[in-house]
Design a protein around this nucleic acid. Structure first.
Length: 589
RNA sequence: GGCCUCGUAGCAUAAUUGAAUAAUGCAUCGCACUUCUAAUGCGACGAGUGCAGGUUUGAAUCCUGCCGGGGCUACCA
């Protein structure tokens, strides 16, 4: 709803009842006549009349006060207002006057917003869970940019610790000196096989020790391979050149693999943080915090914070031997980031199993007195389940990201060829199209769900191209573009004097008009799902319009020109909305 | 045990953060292509929102209890 409507309605409410708050106008449900609806229940105590009488009273006053409305009807406590046709005309004038309707100009003065996402470990390839994380992080970044912020995208790579030492140990023993190239494997997958190989070896050794009569605890702590891995970790920390060399070689393999997947998904980071460089951060901040009384040291030397007054527990921030825990490092890294960049906001895209961690982290930073602590946000997304339950690596049900993308592209190919839609395209064009469609299906399937909710990933539904899906929206876009291509050279001038709006056109205009509010809401609620819903609404509204209105064969030249303009606005809104989701909009499909 | 979270048609998701007869898609059944891409549109069928109370003019949304799923509860997060 436009400003004008809201101000007109509030003026009348002030006159009538002395009501000062801003009224809530909502779109009228389709089953009633009207475009905007005012809920009148809140005014009953002031009007001291029945809901219908009150609605009629307000409606009559509005008609008298403003030309914005032509009619109204009162149904129970709902006042349905019919907008004057010229209101839709000005909506359309507004939305097509802007070259990028829906995107707010970037405020260069404002510090950037940082978004951390993906943040993988370097011991195994990316899987479906990372995919949700990555898609959310990327889309959120785009949405924040569209809402007028500069954005800094970062990931923190967990490149050190026992996990990578396990892979290193296994490669030393079973790798035969082979590299991803010589093995013909993607680097992250290659390293991942050694992580798995280590686990097999470890379990065998534990079993052996137990068979020799040792208790389970002992066996787990004394398996030779595990002792060697721990020794390797110690050497890593002592910067042993040999260990460090192998470590960086294997991590490089992994990064090459990750980068291939990121590139495929269209993901770019502005800055990578590596734990090997940040894991010592935070200790000084803890010391400082002890001085200021935020933390306290126990007799054994460990350092804690007492959050019981805040409804949480006591939390360790430094071990008794002086080494860090994750919290220590996260405190230091957050502080570091505000030094590294001119930012005033930091969002972590991390699964909801870490809700507690982030509550504590943010609270600690607040207590340490950082003014930006209020601008930290944990976009806590739900786990991705498969139709038969949770992904379990031990049961081999983990969905690999690369495999998934392959399957999506293959499905797009077979479906498109079955429909015979790709005649005349070169093979590279086809490959590109199938990638765009397959990824579009996957991305939309994941992003249309509220990030906070746990979701079920059904492989069969995810490759669906009909209904509430990415390809449906892409298809709608392609159809509009096809019409626009054919409209080239036709007369393009028209005026409102020659055009009267039908209901479908009004719906379409009203839908597209919401774009800026949608972006604002998506940014405010950190929810790409809001944009996903909008894109679907636009596609549906256009298809409904298209079904009953001929565009290129409309009755008059003016009407053709108008409808072409409306189609153009539709296409660009669709393209931009999809772009905010990280989805490409093909010209034809 | 404590804390956090979720429970909406057969399935998957919505519901502008408290408003109208709970929306959309899939599935099922039916209708519409000599017309700008039918990967489309239109219609039918299908839930009263886990259960029981409460607050409110009004509750899927808020409160209480119970049932059920998930997460966290380590000097790992």
């Amino acid at each position: 709803m436009t400003e004008a409507l809201v101000t007109a309605v509030s003026a009348v409410l002030r006159d009538l009842y002395g009501w000062e708050a801003s009224p809530e106008l909502q779109p009228t449900r389709k089953e009633f006549e009207g475009d905007a609806t005012l809920v009148v229940f809140p005014f009953l105590k002031l009007s001291r009349k029945s809901p219908v009488e009150t609605a009629n009273e307000i409606g009559a006053a509005l008609l008298k006060a403003t030309p914005l409305f032509t009619r109204f009807n009162a149904v129970q406590g709902f006042l349905n207002l019919v907008l004057a046709s010229d209101q839709f005309e000005s909506l359309f004038d507004a939305l097509r006057s802007s070259a990028d309707w829906g995107c707010w100009p970037v405020d260069a003065e404002l510090p950037a917003a940082m978004v951390e996402f993906s943040s993988p470990n370097t011991n195994k390839p990316l899987h479906l869970g990372h995919v949700r994380n990555i898609l959310l992080g990327h889309s959120l970044s785009r949405i924040l940019e569209a809402s007028g912020r500069k954005v800094v995208k970062v990931q923190i790579i967990n490149d050190r610790g026992v996990h990578i030492c396990k892979s290193m140990w296994a490669w030393q023993h079973f790798g035969d000196g082979m590299t991803p190239e010589s093995a013909g494997q993607k680097g992250d997958h290659w390293v991942g096989t050694f992580y798995v190989r280590f686990d097999q070896e470890y379990r065998a050794q534990v079993r052996e020790l137990m068979d020799a009569g040792h208790p389970e605890d002992y066996a787990k702590n004394h398996a030779p391979c595990m002792l060697e891995v721990q020794e390797m970790l110690r050497k890593w920390e002592d910067r042993d050149p040999e260990v460090r060399a192998l470590w960086s070689t294997m991590n490089e393999w992994v990064y090459a693999g990750f980068n291939t997947t990121y590139k495929r998904l269209g993901i770019v980071f502005d800055r990578n943080y590596y734990e090997s460089e940040t894991y010592l951060l935070g200790k000084q901040d803890i010391e400082a915090g002890i001085q200021s009384g935020v933390f306290y040291r126990r007799d054994d030397g460990s350092v804690w914070i007492d959050l019981r007054e805040d409804g949480l527990d006591e939390k360790l921030v430094l071990r008794s031997d002086g080494t860090s825990v994750y919290m220590t490092q996260d405190i230091g890294t957050a502080i570091q980031r505000f030094k590294d960049f001119s930012i005033n906001r930091l969002t972590y895209v991390v699964g909801n199993e870490q809700d507690y961690h982030f509550r504590v982290l943010f609270l600690i930073l607040k207590k340490l007195g950082y003014p930006w602590a209020d601008e930290l946000y944990h976009l806590s997304y739900g786990m991705v389940d498969l139709p038969n339950g949770r992904m379990k690596s031990r049961e081999g049900t983990v969905v690999d990201a690369d495999d998934l993308l392959d399957e999506m592209e293959a499905s797009a190919r077979s479906l498109s060829e079955e429909l015979g839609k790709t005649e005349g395209l070169s093979e590279p064009e086809k490959a590109k199209l199938y990638q765009v469609l397959g990824h579009g299906a996957l991305k939309y399937y994941i992003l249309k769900v509220d990030p906070r909710k746990r979701m079920v990933f059904n492989p069969e539904e995810s490759i669906d191209f009909n209904g509430h899906t990415g390809p449906f929206i892409q298809y709608s876009h392609a159809r509009v573009r096809s019409i626009l291509r054919k409209s080239e050279g036709l007369p393009s001038s028209w005026s409102w004097a020659d055009v009267r709006l039908d209901e479908r056109s009004k719906d379409l205009i009203q839908t597209i008009y919401r774009f800026p509010e949608v972006v604002e809401q998506a940014a405010r609620t950190y929810s790409p799902a809001v944009v996903a819903q909008f894109a679907y609404d636009v596609a549906k509204a256009f298809n409904a319009f298209y079904q009953v209105n001929s565009i290129l064969n409309a009755e008059s030249e003016a009407l053709i020109a108008f409808r072409v303009d409306l189609s153009r606005a539709t296409a660009s809104s669709l393209r931009r909305a999809l772009d905010l989701l990280g989805i490409e909009a093909p010209e034809r499909m």
